[in-house]
């Protein structure tokens, strides 16, 4: 664990969750925070997305309120990404302002309600560009049929939107999230404003080496997405240079989002 102990580690992808009563699941939060401290992380960037259906503004505002509640419990370890449903354009734009200005969140989190290339999402993307904040989007190229999440974005959806908005900062979530990671790397390779987090439970030998080879460490971000041992193990086991690993653990391009919040 010396790699983690001796370097700054920013975890750009993890979550808090609601309990059965719709409140902050404090047990899971505390396990996550303990894991972060135990594994020498400096910061977790977290969100609370709704995984199924088409959440209303009331629902996504509640998610962000709960995320902020978690941050207030652990202000030195956790920051937030605002979850919104871009189908509710006006309410989403208002919610982004609320989360960025009042809660100090660092960016936004989109889930599987719309492909990121869907024109519905464009007002939200333009808002993020105006605010200069990153967009983390749930993503995968799933080869398993039937498709359980038909509106999950894949690398080609990212490529479309990245070429349409070259000034946007798009984070393709979890290369280890269970999809065809080789396909994904080829799909996003040529788009310098698509970044990729390494989180997820899939820890295939070679996945980090391939990601580093296709898009380079400067476009890779460390994350866990609840799979701490897999994500940490991938970093420890990858046959890439120490300098590349250090860059992934604390991507310099993303430091500005932290610095403006005094981190």
């Amino acid at each position: 664990m010396d790699l983690f102990k001796n370097n700054k580690v920013i975890n750009w992808h993890d979550h808090v969750w609601l309990d059965d009563k719709g409140n902050l699941d404090e047990r899971r939060l505390e396990l996550t925070i303990k894991a972060a401290y135990d594994t020498y992380m400096d910061l977790i960037v977290s969100s609370l997305p709704v995984l199924k259906g088409n959440p209303t503004p009331e629902e996504f505002r509640h998610c962000n309120d709960v995320q902020y509640q978690a941050i207030k419990k652990h202000p030195n370890m956790m920051k937030g990404m605002a979850f919104i449903n871009p189908g509710y354009v006006k309410e989403s734009l208002e919610e982004i302002d609320r989360c960025i200005n009042e809660f100090g969140f660092l960016g936004i989190k989109l889930y599987n309600q719309y492909h990121i290339s869907n024109p519905v999402v464009r007002d939200v993307i333009e808002k993020c560009i105006k605010l200069d904040i990153p967009i983390l989007e749930h993503a995968a190229k799933l080869n398993y049929k039937p498709e359980l999440q038909p509106f999950t974005s894949n690398g080609e959806h990212f490529a479309k939107v990245a070429s349409l908005y070259p000034e946007g900062v798009f984070i393709h979530a979890h290369i280890g999230g269970g999809g065809d990671w080789q396909w994904t790397l080829k799909a996003i390779e040529e788009f310098p404003n698509i970044y990729l987090d390494i989180s997820g439970s899939v820890c295939d030998e070679g996945i980090i080496e391939a990601a580093n080879s296709y898009i380079g460490s400067k476009r890779l971000l460390f994350g866990t997405d609840m799979s701490f041992s897999s994500s940490i193990g991938k970093m420890l086991g990858a046959d890439i240079s120490y300098e590349d690993k250090v860059e992934i653990l604390n991507n310099k391009k993303f430091e500005k989002y932290l610095m403006r919040r005094g981190i």
């Binding site: 664990m1 135990d38 820890c203 030998e205 193990g233 086991g237």
Partner: peptide, 16 residues
Amino acid sequence: VSPFQYIEPQLVKLQY
């Protein structure tokens, strides 16, 4: 599951 997967994720679990 080597050589399909990195061994380190399992070693991390043992360590903790």
